[in-house]
Design a protein around this nucleic acid. Structure first.
Length: 419
RNA sequence: GUGGCCAUGGUGAAGAGGCCGAACACAUAUGACUGUGACUCAUACAUUCGAGGGUUCGAAUCCCUCUGGCCACCCCA
């Protein structure tokens, strides 16, 4: 048995890479427009960074991290998400001191040891953005606007933007108590998982998909109704700003996040097209995180999208890049001349292919057809002595005489392209 | 971590103990056509049915183990 890739780790083959490039290019363009700059941080960090940021009792930290001990004896972890590393870099390099506002984006692989399924892999890729230094609700709206513009430019209108507020350390504990009390009263109607969650992660019950639980929690208290005055005002203003920019969203009071650091505004882009993986992108505000990691009290907000999930939504959209010309050659002198011509035409920006296996003319023509080259030309003794070639349009089989000169051929090809 | 389904060539697959020396189609290669693709025709292309063991006179077909894949749960991007 030959060696295969590890479970949940995938190769991205040439057939798929154009979609990824499209996603990445679109993200860079939109982020740049909003003043974000790229940051590249390591994919391995000290384990403690993730324990302290994501939360010791979250599923990610408890059972999904790729953690190992290196030769020096320190515990290292393959990053399960991007925010922690970026915040570590922000603190380590004191970026917050260079400028009070930092707008950073990143893209790259993340690792979680989960059972793979559709839209979920052990190595997956995220594109994320983080804005630190501003607690103003306008910033929340700006980030949400950026997310919605990004998906608009990706050509995806289906995922719906949902927002919620998770409150802050001042108001969440009281809400949590109220919710636990409610769940205790209705526990007969809850599924086993939700009964267990009452103590560990009561908020999760609001997100349960079991019909009985959905019904039982209909009347459950919502965080948005238990926000302290500051959080409440913050959330209202976020929504005012969103309205001002005509950002379409839906308020989802039952939305819960899996990472501990989130405060106040949280959001998700939700789709129904990916089986049980409904979140295509998600994020929120994390005002206490930087301080929690040993930095100054710098507020922040950010989000990340799952590239694999976006690629699935984009589906089989074609991004094929086809050759402009195929040069079929006969004999060594023509082969050399063809190579010279190929070089010149490539320099002028055309995509040009030629035989590199010494095949028969028929085989070369078949290859030109298979590659879906728009034009094809044969170069042999006849053409070399005559100094002209016939340029064949593959779609209709028509041919035109063109002088054997790179400029003339390029002109004939691009001239027709422009029509 | 738990559960369900599945595993035949480059691809899609037929095949339910001997008729499989593994169908059919697509793809690929070569030729018909001593220098012009697409259509057509011909020829080639799985010492073998995920791996290992077992039942049997006989296994791709039945049993066990392992490995891998997909999907769902948990949770998440």
């Amino acid at each position: 048995m030959s060696i295969t890739a590890i479970k949940g780790f995938n190769d991205l083959l040439p057939a798929e890479s154009p979609i990824w490039q499209f996603i990445e290019q679109t993200a860079r363009r939109v982020f740049t427009r909003f003043g974000f700059q790229e940051i590249r941080v390591p994919i391995v960090e000290k384990t403690e960074l993730f324990c302290r940021s994501i939360g010791d009792t979250t599923d990610i930290v408890e059972k999904e991290m790729y953690t190992f001990t290196d030769k020096g004896g320190s515990s290292l972890t393959l990053r399960p998400e991007g925010t922690a590393g970026v915040m570590r870099a922000l603190i380590e390099h004191k970026l917050y001191a260079l400028d009070s506002i930092n707008k950073l984006y990143y893209m790259g692989p993340m690792f979680r040891h989960e059972r793979p399924q559709k839209g979920r892999y052990r190595q997956f890729h995220q594109i994320g953005a983080e804005l630190t230094g501003a607690a103003d609700p306008l910033v929340d709206a700006q980030v949400l606007l950026m997310v919605s513009r990004l998906f608009q430019e990706l050509g995806l209108t289906e995922p719906q933007l949902q927002i919620n507020s998770l409150g802050c350390p001042a108001c969440r504990p009281a809400y949590r108590e109220a919710l636990i009390a409610f769940l205790a009263e209705h526990q007969d109607a809850l599924c086993d998982d939700c009964r267990r969650r009452q103590s560990t992660n009561p908020l999760r019950a609001l997100d349960c998909k079991v019909p009985g639980c959905v019904e039982a929690t209909q009347g459950a208290p919502a965080m948005v109704e238990h926000l302290c005055a500051e959080c409440d005002s913050h959330f209202s203003r976020v929504q005012e700003y969103l309205a001002a920019a005509s950002v379409v969203y839906r308020l989802n009071p039952r939305m819960v996040r899996g990472l501990d650091y989130y405060t106040r505004t949280t959001f998700e882009l939700v789709t129904g097209l990916l089986g049980s993986q409904s979140a295509v992108a998600a994020g929120g505000r994390y005002d206490g995180l930087v301080e929690q990691l040993g930095g100054p009290a710098v507020p922040g907000i950010g989000f990340a999208l799952g590239v694999e999930r976006v690629a699935l939504l984009l589906g089989d959209r074609s991004f094929e890049q086809l050759p402009d010309l195929f040069i079929a050659v006969m004999g060594e002198p023509a082969r050399i001349a063809g190579f010279t011509l190929q070089a010149a035409l490539q320099d002028s920006g055309l995509r040009v292919e030629m035989d590199c296996e010494g095949k028969s003319l028929k085989s070369q023509m078949r290859r030109a057809d298979k590659l879906k080259s728009r034009y094809c030309m044969v170069l042999g003794e006849t053409e070399l002595t005559a100094g002209s070639i016939s340029l064949k349009t593959m779609t209709d089989g028509s041919q035109q005489q063109v002088r054997l000169e790179a400029r003339e051929i390029a002109a004939a090809i691009t001239g027709r392209c422009m029509k």
